[in-house]
Nucleic acid binder design. Sequence first.
RNA 1: GCGAGCGUAGCUCAGCUGGUUAGAGCACCGGAUUGUGGAUCCGGGGGUCGUGGGUUCAAGCCCCAUCGCUCGCCCCA
Length: 416
Amino acid sequence: MTLSRLQPVRGTRDLLPDDCRRHRLVGETARAIAERYGYGEIATPIFEFTEVFKRTLGETSDIVTKEMYSFTDRGGEMLTLRPENTAGVARAFISGELGQLLPLKFFYAGPMFRHERPQKGRLRQFHQIGVELIGVAEPLGDIEVIGLGAHILDALGVLGRTTLELNTLGDAESRQAYRAALRDYLGARRAALSPESQERLERNPLRILDSKDAGDRQLIQDAPRNAEFLNAASADFFKRVRDGLDAIGVRYTVNPFLVRGLDYYCHSAFEFTTTELGAQSAVLAGGRYDGLIETMGGPPTPGVGWAAGIERLSMLVADVPMATRPIALVPVGAAGEAAALALAAELRRAGFAIDLGYRGNMSKRMKHANKANARAALLIGDDELAKDIVTLRDLDSGGQEAVERGRLAERLAAFR
RNA sequence: GCGAGCGUAGCUCAGCUGGUUAGAGCACCGGAUUGUGGAUCCGGGGGUCGUGGGUUCAAGCCCCAUCGCUCGCCCCA
């Protein structure tokens, strides 16, 4: 391709300071709340051996078959930029031999990569926050993890614009039984299915349940229901999760058609959805993955977790955090210039945000201070130097006062 | 991978049935203001009309291709 007009790779974006502040608000809010629940941050590499994702996501999943950024490195290893982080965390658990430390509670935040067609709320490099609770087989784990997600959404002020949809896939036995029943029912009506769903019938019949096609939805209304195929243990598990959510005041809607795309899920599947992101509805989604770690060659270990898209959350967050308001230094004349340089260093070390204009006469620098949204301006010219003071101007009120140089830091505390 | 829509200044857009030298607002820079920002006024810079080809006496406008963006499908955060 030609570089005559330099562009970012399709589906990637530059995050300018305003964007970064938004992202940071999401990440830091989530991290702080997750820590209250005892979740420590984990950072795994952004690439892994391709095999890590192939084995965990299932050979036939869309992510593996067409969305991975894979490449061969100089040593001939097949590597892949992570399309999600659960597989990486599970791999870290296994390769770090962390089984003695169960239960483990991880929080993460970072970039993920999927080779998809970009659209609203969907990028090729995007960012996720997420949590994984490893080693807890009880419904209490599901409840905690979902409650933590709701807590974070609430802290960000977006919980009210989402709906928590909840379903159960049951354990392996229940899921197999339902899958077979669904395949029989839909197989008998194959001709009436949309072309996409005819495909799904072979690969993953459960996916037909959340088809957007009107004809499919019609058929699904009368299809066998998941609930009828849950064995006693699975039904009880689901009830305990629902009771727990009721107990902690998390509202949800049971959606029997909610399924997850990845193979390793069982029992709880959940999505906090919104109607404000175009064709994308999921803001925070996850579920239980008891079989995953064993599938990867580790000891049989249950897990439950979720991931949330930072870009999607950012679009829902109403107020952009403001940049720190600096204090502007405005020197007048050469002597003032030299004094301002030293004063800037001193005040920055003392913890103040200082904007030191680089050029221009006083009027220009005041204009610049205003554009920088400075809280106050410190004027330093010959008059001030002679009296060992600086002139402090409050840029919000317009009030101005002389402050002794020795008392400056003390007086400025009010403008921090 | 498939489908649709859109590309004119840094941004948002106007530009008539094709017809002189492509405009506006905002933003930016300078001045009114050589020790005082925001408001106002005056002035200025900035465009190969995404790119390439075609039709025409004449193309920002019509046709084709191509690149890019956006939205949707699939799938997903």
